[in-house]
Every structure is written in structure tokens, then in C-alpha cells.
Amino acid sequence: MALNTPQITPTKKITVRAIGEELPRGDYQRCPQCDMLFSLPEINSHQSAYCPRCQAKIRDGRDWSLTRLAAMAFTMLLLMPFAWGEPLLHIWLLGIRIDANVMQGIWQMTKQGDAITGSMVFFCVIGAPLILVTSIAYLWFGNRLGMNLRPVLLMLERLKEWVMLDIYLVGIGVASIKVQDYAHIQAGVGLFSFVALVILTTVTLSHLNVEELWERFYPQRPATRRDEKLRVCLGCHFTGYPDQRGRCPRCHIPLRLRRRHSLQKCWAALLASIVLLLPANLLPISIIYLNGGRQEDTILSGIMSLASSNIAVAGIVFIASILVPFTKVIVMFTLLLSIHFKCQQGLRTRILLLRMVTWIGRWSMLDLFVISLTMSLINRDQILAFTMGPAAFYFGAAVILTILAVEWLDSRLLWDAHESGNARFDD
């Protein structure tokens, strides 16, 4: 018995066209964080690309023209004298008006014999932002004059995390709450300039795509075929072959399989920071003279006294001054041990922890910024005066060393310790 099946006739004509040209192939790229070699397709503007294995951002879609970056830099340069030299806060102490600005706080630190601690604050609040705007201006002028731009481009990517104007702005709020127990506070004209400078700096850093600047100024022929001998440069993120001198053909720094002496430098910085954190938390970090009496505060006791007036601000200072430094030390110690013992479990967790400490590390400088600003506000000789204690130097040095330890660690070593050939990683 035959089955009668109805015929289905399409209502619209289906047209099949042959592909007349070869589909576009992607360029081969190595991930600078996990060293995976993959094919990167062509990316349009405002599109980002991520590593298929570790999800690290390979290409950032946010990109401004150099002219727009230069305009932002010149605007920031105009704001800087007002943000640093004009009063941020006014207080009335014992019937006398006192003005506080950024430069005055750094000068008070240096004047009291601790120039190293003052230079830490100076670099993060004044030096690094000033280098940022002058570097962008150098790129703008240098591109037109045919100057060598490689050193500036190499420095810009590392400079971003040292620009800490946003953290200093939080420190202004913390210092205001600490001082309000002794005097009446009012915002100064410099505060508005400083807030504007923070906003412009944040926007500029978020749109400063150094890798795209490398592509514009020093374009290189990408690798179009897969080759395990391809290496990625950690300076400019170019994937290719080393030249005859073993250097990256684009930025001219040595092109090595792994960062040289990464573990040794990381261990040295980490152990030194552990040693410095002990006096930083045991010795007094601030000293207040009130009517001839002397009151010393460690980091913890200062947080407890701050909690009596504002528990939320005390929580912020606790996280930045105690929780973050010790968390960074514990995480980095764990990561280094996992590399030495070739741990194969929990790779995803370790990668996330490394990215976390990379982002939060700079916030530990908050305590030094609060001390710097408070020193310029309260300084009335023996009637009422505020000065920093010996722990300030140890704390600042420990924070900087932990930042350097994270920067010096080559994250690809975590993958080397893991089993080879993993296309995915999980716990």
C-alpha cells in the first residue's frame, strides 16, 4: 500500500549564491595573561575582544583620537594649579581661619623630617597626573615632529594605576569627618577644581587605549598563520617573532617567553612588605597634641575612634588600611606557593584573586592621604596640633611594595603550573 505524501511548494523562490571570495581570516594573537594562541577576527570600533580561555580583555573598544586626548590633557593642565594650590577646605580653629590644600599637606610631611613619605604622596597625587598630561601632550606634538614615541607609550600603561586623584578625593571626605570634632569646616574653591580634575582624569584614563596608539604610530604586520613560536610582548602586546637582537619589532624591548626574574622580584617585594606591615600596624601612625597632652593612634585605634562619629567612614578606612593590605599579602603568598608547588586545582579562583588584588591594591594609600591633609588643617603649635607617627613611612612603603609585587608577577606562570593543553579552566 503506497502512502500519498503531499508536496510542499515554497511560496518564495530560494536563491543560492556561491561564495565568490575567501572568507576573511583572523590574525593570530597570544593572550598576555595566559599565553593562549588564538585567531582574533577583525574588530570594529566600539567592540571589545576577550581571550577565549581566561576571559582577559585583549582589545578595548573604547578609543579616543589623539586630538581629543590632547584637549583633555590641556584642560587638566589648566585645572591643576587651582586643584593643588587653592584651598580645598576652610576650618575655623580657636577663632582663626585655616586653609588646607594639597601642596601644603605634602610640605608639612616633608617639613617634619619625613621627606620619603611626603614624596610618596607627591608622586601619586601630583607627579603621576602631571606625567600623564605631559605624556599625552608629548605624543600629540611628537607625532607631528617625527619624534620617538616608544618610551612614552611604554610608560603610559604602567602609569595608570599610580594616578590616585580619586583616592585622594575620598581622603578629603575622611579628613573632614575627623577634623569636624575640633573645628567648623567649609569647602574651599580649590575643592571644585579638584573634583573637576578627578572627573576629567577618570574619563581620560578610561578612554586612553595605549594598544590602539601603538597600532597608529607603529603598525606591524600581524601573524596570519598559526605558529607556536609566536611570542607576545608584555610592553606593547604585539604578537610576532623577535628581531635579530631578540627584541620586539614594535617597542624594541627584549621579547622573552616569560617575564625575567618574575618570581624572585615578586618574592622579594612580598617578604619586604610583610616585614614592614608589622611596625606599620604596631607603631603610632598619627599623633595629636591637645592642650599640651599627647595622644597617639595606631591604624586600628584611629579607626575605632573614627567609628564613634561615623561608622560608615570608619568601615571604608578599615577596608583600605587593614583589610586590603593583608588580603593582598595572603593572596600573593598563596599564588606564589601554588606556582612553586605546581598546583593544578582552583586555577579559576587564583586568576580571579590576582585580578582582584590588581584592582584594589592602590586604595591602601588612602590613610597616607588623610594624614597629609589633616596635617595641613590642624597645626596650632602646642594648643592643638596633628602630626604623623613613625608607622606612616612603614605603611606607605608596604603598600608600594605590594603594588610592585602584583605588577611583577607574570600571570602566565600560573598556567605553566597548571596542566598543559587546557582550553578551559575551572575549579
Score class of each variant (00 low, 15 high):
Ala115His: 05
Ile319Phe: 12
Asp27Tyr: 10
Leu40Val: 09
Arg258Asp: 06
Ser305Lys: 06
Leu278Lys: 02
Pro279Lys: 04
Arg250His: 04
Gln186Thr: 05
Gly142Arg: 01
Gln112Leu: 05
Arg25Ser: 13
Ala272Ser: 08
Ala405Tyr: 10
Arg258Pro: 06
Trp408Phe: 06
Cys266Asp: 03
Glu42Phe: 07
Pro222Trp: 08
Asp114Ala: 07
Thr374Leu: 04
His340Asn: 07
Gly127Trp: 03
Gln345Gly: 14
Met80Ile: 07
Lys328Tyr: 00
Leu373Pro: 02
Gln112Thr: 09
Arg221Gln: 07
Tyr138Glu: 01
Ile43Leu: 10
Ser321Tyr: 12
Ile383Ser: 02
Met375Ser: 12
Ile400Cys: 07
Val102Trp: 05
Leu197Lys: 01
Leu366Arg: 00
Thr402Leu: 00
Leu200Pro: 04
Cys124Trp: 01
Trp64Gly: 14
Tyr168Thr: 15
Ile322Tyr: 04
Thr67Lys: 11
Ile19Asn: 11
Pro10Gln: 09
Ala423Phe: 06
Thr11Trp: 13
Arg25Gly: 10
Val125Tyr: 13
Leu234Cys: 15
Phe194Ser: 12
Thr327Lys: 13
Pro242Ser: 08
Arg256Val: 08
Leu130Ala: 11
Ala187Cys: 07
His340Glu: 08
Leu139Ser: 02
Phe141Trp: 03
Phe82Ile: 12
Leu353Ala: 14
Arg59Trp: 10
Ala272Gly: 04
Phe341Thr: 11
Ala423Met: 13
Arg260Glu: 05
Pro222Tyr: 06
Gly85His: 10
Ile116Asp: 13
Ser206Pro: 13
Gln108Glu: 06
Tyr50Leu: 07
Arg68Ser: 02
Leu290Ala: 02
Ser286Val: 04
Ser321Val: 02
Leu283Gly: 03
Arg362Asp: 02
Ile19Phe: 12
Cys343Val: 12
Gly235Leu: 01
Ile351Pro: 14
Asp27Trp: 14
His418Thr: 07
Phe386Val: 02
Thr204Tyr: 04
Phe395Ile: 06
Thr5Met: 15
Leu352Glu: 08
Ser48Pro: 04
Pro254Cys: 04
Asp227Leu: 15
Val370Ala: 04
Cys266Leu: 05
Tyr394Ala: 02
Arg245Gln: 07
Asp381Thr: 03
Val370Tyr: 00
Arg256Ser: 07
Pro52Leu: 11
Lys328Cys: 00
Asp416Leu: 12
Arg225Asn: 09
Pro254Ala: 02
Gly188Arg: 13
His46Arg: 08
Asn310Tyr: 05
Gln382His: 13
Ile126Phe: 09
Leu336Ala: 09
Phe192Asn: 04
Gln29Val: 13
Tyr182Gln: 09
Arg216Phe: 08
Ala385Lys: 04
Val357Lys: 07
Gln295His: 14
Arg247Ala: 07
Asn422Lys: 15
Leu300Met: 09
Ala397Asn: 06
Pro129Trp: 03
Asp114Tyr: 08
Ala307Pro: 06
Ile378Lys: 00
His261Cys: 03
Gln33Phe: 12
Trp162Cys: 02
Gln47Cys: 15
Asp367His: 00
Gly26Lys: 13
Ser309Lys: 02
Leu197Asn: 02
Met109Ile: 10
Met332Ala: 10
Pro222Ala: 07
Phe326Gln: 06
Gln382Pro: 14
Asp227Trp: 10
Arg247Tyr: 09
Thr374Asp: 00
Asp227Lys: 08
Gln244Trp: 15
Lys160Gln: 10
Gln55Leu: 14
Phe393Lys: 13
Leu276Gln: 06
His237Ile: 07
Lys160Val: 09
Ile288Cys: 02
Pro222Gln: 10
Ala391Asn: 03
Met356Ser: 09
Leu88Val: 06
Ile287Gln: 04
Ser301Glu: 07
Ser376Thr: 11
Ser338Asn: 13
Trp415Ile: 07
Gly61Trp: 15
Cys248Arg: 00
Leu277Arg: 02
Phe333Trp: 06
Ile287Glu: 08
Gly346Leu: 14
Arg424Asn: 15
